[in-house]
Write a protein that binds this DNA or RNA. Structure first.
Lengths: 250, 250
DNA sequence: GTAATAGTGTCTATCAGACACTATTCA
DNA sequence: TGAATAGTGTCTGATAGACACTATTAC
């Protein structure tokens, strides 16, 4: 008990440096989108430092003057890259160790983001930074990633797949208006398996997350499909997890 | 696009300070246990600094010389307080902003831990630090907490309740050997509702996480109960989430 | 008409929840 | 014997998954 925060931390009410060495603190974001009928993630080619020339998740150091909180640090980077100001952004977990960056003790807060397929055009940053969309295959991509980014990406894909199973979170990958068939196809791309139409529609409608738009769309062929849009705030909208009810009395 | 990590970060292969201000980096842990037929969390009374005299979750600054990774920082603090070397420890999420600590930009990685009720005796630290177990009521405790610890605690309770619904994680709150009735009572304390015996046993046995120990125990009254113990590693042992199967073809 | 896709109706096997029942101890 | 707790059996309502069916467009 010699090393508690209370024992070592000097009292101070100013912003002076407290005098101990801190880890490097960053955020890194797995930005997902659907392109060319595949789930893709946006990667950046590193031009300096360790892992130079390798692909990595976009991210950056937390700027204590500029960023008010962690999420704003992630959003700043995301907006600069994709132009999307308010994407679906969810914190994954934090990775920190002595070894993950060969230079020093480093910590990164991992996020994943879902960007609608209609806003896919990358900013000017694309050329400048050599940014590319890579197809998700299994829980990884076809190129090796810098640092522990393969681990972060794998966790992001797992989380997305898991979330998609009990919530209609995939609407964030679609344009503002979409058909239920498009929503289902997005689910199938994420999960990597086909779904039956009838129970899918039953579930989606039961959540109330989407609502029909009066107006129709047509495809290349077939009956026109009803367009839907995001109805409510995402919060608290879940498929009922029947497993969650496993022990719960009515 | 002037503030990317690549643009600003100087190249270096040493551990020298890169020259920009970093946030304070900490871990804080909500340590849960069951005592006196209630779910409790261990709190520490702050003796210095902001929120002096208020209760807070135990935690500490990440020591880059001493801690190999985030988890070891959390375990170090946990072991010092409770004497438990390998508890169930799970990362919650990270809280970071300009405002959460009045002194400076601060970031804390939140964890929650489950400590078996048989190892409840606090270390010498208890008196030294004024540590106490507080009963969880709803998703909080009866005293105001320092910093944003009420938020962290609330998230920890929510996560624990959620996890308990699809996994037998509560075994980590029980002693090495326990009866199914004790396991069920633990569930009921966590969830705050009563459960039916029959489906509970069906589910728990179906997971295979617990296995009977040949030997019996008796209570103050009634038929002796079979003792069980933790059978397998926690990994990948979940109740089947039937909601997860909602769209999934067999 | 056919092709193509959207959308609905319905059957069935499964199972969570309810609850009654049996089993085994102590006093 | 009764009280108390452990543990099992079984019925039922709900529903996920399967799949057939109808609807509406273009050609």
């Amino acid at each position: 008990m010699t090393d508690t925060e209370i024992g070592k931390e000097p009292f101070m009410d100013t912003y002076e440096d407290p005098g101990y060495a801190r880890p490097d603190a960053r955020v890194d974001v797995a930005i997902f989108s659907v392109r060319d009928a595949a789930l893709k993630v946006l990667l950046i080619k590193r031009r300096v430092g360790p892992f130079k020339g390798q692909w990595a998740l976009p991210g950056g150091t937390i700027h204590i003057e500029e960023d008010t909180d962690l999420e704003s640090a992630a959003k700043r980077r995301l907006k600069a890259l994709t132009g999307v100001a308010s994407p679906y952004l969810e914190q994954l977990r934090t990775y920190g160790s002595r070894d993950r960056d060969p230079r020093r003790w480093s910590l990164t807060v991992g996020y994943y983001a879902l960007v609608p397929s209609e806003t896919l055009s990358l900013q000017a940053a694309e050329e400048a930074e050599d940014a590319r969309w890579y197809t998700i295959d299994g829980d990884t991509v076809s190129v090796p990633l810098a640092f522990d980014h393969a681990q972060i990406l794998s966790n992001a894909v797992t989380r997305l797949r898991s979330k998609v199973e009990y919530s209609p979170v995939a609407v964030h990958l679609l344009p503002e208006q979409f058909t239920l068939a498009e929503l289902q196809r997005t689910y199938e791309l994420i999960l990597g398996e086909t779904l039956d139409k009838s129970p899918f529609r039953r579930q989606v409608k039961a959540t109330g997350l989407v609502e029909p738009v009066k107006g129709r769309m047509r495809q290349g062929a077939g009956r026109p499909a009803q367009l839907y849009r995001f109805a409510k705030r995402y919060d608290a909208l879940f498929f009922p997890r029947s497993l969650a009810r496993a022990h719960r009395p009515v």
